[in-house]
Simulated scan of single mutants.
Amino acid sequence: MITFWMQMRRTIRLLWSLFKDAETRGIAGVTTVLLLSGTLFYAHVEHFTYLDALYFSFTTLTTIGYGDIYPVTAVGKIFTMAYSVIGLGVMGSFLAVVVKKISQFDRRR
C-alpha cells in the first residue's frame, strides 16, 4: 500500500510539473482547440450529438477508430482525412513533450 501512495505522489508531481511547463500548456491548448473544432464540425455537418461528435473526434485523434460511428457525407470524409493527419502531428508533438518531461523529471530525482 505504501508503494501505491508513493507512486501516486510521484504521478501528481509529474502532472503538476507538466502543467507548469509553457510548452506542455501550449500543446494541450492546441489539442483542445482541435478537439473542439472537430466536435463542432461533426455536430453541424454530420448531425452527430455533441457527445458523439466529441467521442468521434477523440477516437480519430488518438487513432483508436472503433468504427461504431463514422462520417457519411463527402465533406465529412474529406474533413476527417485532413483532421486525422493534423491530429497525428499534434498528438505526436504532445506525446513527445510529455516523454521529454518525464525523462527530465526522472533525471532530477
Results as ranks from 00 to 15, higher is better:
residue 40 L to M: 05
residue 44 H to F: 10
residue 41 F to M: 02
residue 31 T to V: 14
residue 29 G to H: 04
residue 50 Y to E: 12
residue 33 V to A: 13
residue 41 F to T: 00
residue 52 D to H: 03
residue 53 A to I: 00
residue 48 F to Q: 00
residue 41 F to N: 01
residue 42 Y to V: 01
residue 29 G to M: 06
residue 40 L to S: 03
residue 39 T to I: 01
residue 33 V to E: 03
residue 49 T to Y: 05
residue 50 Y to M: 06
residue 29 G to T: 00
residue 30 V to F: 12
residue 35 L to S: 03
residue 44 H to R: 15
residue 28 A to Y: 12
residue 53 A to R: 00
residue 36 L to R: 05
residue 45 V to K: 07
residue 50 Y to H: 15
residue 56 F to Q: 01
residue 28 A to H: 08
residue 49 T to G: 15
residue 37 S to W: 07
residue 53 A to L: 09
residue 40 L to Q: 10
residue 41 F to L: 06
residue 41 F to S: 00
residue 41 F to Y: 09
residue 43 A to V: 10
residue 43 A to H: 11
residue 49 T to H: 03
residue 44 H to T: 13
residue 46 E to I: 00
residue 58 F to W: 15
residue 42 Y to Q: 07
residue 52 D to G: 05
residue 38 G to C: 05
residue 57 S to T: 04
residue 30 V to I: 15
residue 47 H to V: 08
residue 30 V to D: 03
residue 55 Y to W: 14
residue 46 E to K: 09
residue 30 V to E: 07
residue 49 T to P: 09
residue 37 S to Y: 04
residue 56 F to A: 03
residue 56 F to R: 00
residue 28 A to Q: 03
residue 33 V to P: 07
residue 51 L to N: 01
residue 46 E to Y: 07
residue 29 G to V: 10
residue 50 Y to R: 07
residue 55 Y to Q: 05
residue 31 T to F: 15
residue 48 F to E: 02
residue 34 L to I: 07
residue 39 T to V: 02
residue 37 S to N: 13
residue 27 I to D: 02
residue 36 L to C: 14
residue 55 Y to R: 13
residue 29 G to I: 04
residue 27 I to G: 10
residue 39 T to H: 08
residue 55 Y to D: 13
residue 47 H to G: 08
residue 51 L to W: 15
residue 45 V to Q: 05
residue 54 L to M: 13
residue 44 H to D: 12
residue 28 A to W: 15
residue 46 E to T: 06
residue 44 H to Y: 12
residue 32 T to H: 11
residue 34 L to Q: 08
residue 54 L to K: 00
residue 30 V to H: 05
residue 50 Y to L: 14
residue 52 D to N: 13
residue 41 F to E: 03
residue 54 L to D: 01
residue 31 T to D: 10
residue 45 V to G: 04
residue 54 L to E: 04
residue 55 Y to C: 02
residue 30 V to T: 10
residue 51 L to A: 11
residue 47 H to S: 08
residue 36 L to D: 15
residue 52 D to Y: 12
residue 46 E to D: 11
residue 50 Y to I: 14
residue 37 S to G: 07
residue 36 L to V: 13
residue 36 L to N: 06
residue 29 G to Q: 05
residue 33 V to I: 15
residue 38 G to M: 03
residue 39 T to C: 11
residue 56 F to N: 05
residue 28 A to D: 13
residue 32 T to M: 15
residue 45 V to A: 12
residue 27 I to L: 15
residue 56 F to L: 11
residue 51 L to V: 15
residue 57 S to A: 13
residue 39 T to D: 07
residue 54 L to H: 06
residue 37 S to P: 06
residue 37 S to E: 09
residue 35 L to Q: 10
residue 54 L to Q: 00
residue 52 D to A: 05
residue 48 F to L: 09
residue 38 G to H: 03
residue 40 L to H: 08
residue 51 L to D: 09
residue 41 F to Q: 01
residue 54 L to N: 02
residue 32 T to S: 13
residue 40 L to K: 05
residue 38 G to Q: 04
